[in-house]
């Protein structure tokens, strides 16, 4: 075991060691270091792109997904990411800012994606979430619905679902809900 204090050197210098140990720089937080690594190693699929409103704040950014196949081809969907100081112990908070007709995303922008909540693990990265979100657009999953109406249509009438998605992306009403245009 390390003998930490011999009686000889028992007094601690109460004041700052000052000049000897350098100025009291604030340290980057563990969350900050981890997100820097995540961001520096982002390898985005070609349908995705990220934007940082403030490049000094890596904890807050937007992801834009523009699917090139599937129901949502041609659409343009913006997600906001907020990474807290608990990261990666806690997942980032992700919301969809674009109104979308989708079984797993509700009209408030809440997303049903397991790794954003119950299945989050600290080994996962921002990249894992990007791929998870991208997958939602390729394979919308009617089993875990957030938008129940959309999920029912997808389950019972794929043609109608496809038409509804196209209509919503062009801008228009599905039932009583108006969707803004999100085609490029």
């Amino acid at each position: 075991m390390i003998k930490l204090f011999s009686l000889k050197q028992q007094k601690k210098d109460g004041t700052d060691g000052g000049s000897k140990s350098g100025p009291a720089h604030k340290k980057a937080s563990a969350a900050q270091l981890r997100i820097t690594k995540d961001i520096n190693e982002l390898s985005l699929p070609k349908t995705c792109q990220v934007e940082f409103p403030d490049p000094d704040d890596l904890l807050s950014f937007k992801l834009i997904i523009s699917p090139d196949e599937g129901f949502y081809k041609g659409g343009h969907f913006v997600f906001s990411f907020k990474v807290g100081q608990g990261y990666p112990h806690e997942p980032p908070k992700v919301k969809c800012e674009t109104m979308v007709y989708h079984p797993n995303i509700d009209l408030e922008g809440n997303i049903c994606l397991n790794i954003l909540r119950e299945d989050w693990k600290p080994v996962l990265t921002i990249n894992s979430i990007v791929y998870g979100l991208q997958y939602l657009f390729l394979e919308p999953n009617p089993e875990d619905p957030l938008n129940k109406e959309a999920a029912e249509v997808l389950q019972n009438n794929r043609r109608l679902f496809e038409q509804n998605v196209a209509k919503a992306m062009r801008g228009g009403y599905i039932g009583s809900t108006y969707f803004e245009r999100c085609l490029k």
């Binding site: 797993n104 809440n110 049903c112 909540r117 957030l146 129940k148």
Partner: peptide, 9 residues
């Protein structure tokens, strides 16, 4: 964290 769809529906 409970699954979003569980708490929603």
């Amino acid at each position: 964290n409970f699954p979003m769809c569980t708490i929603a529906h």
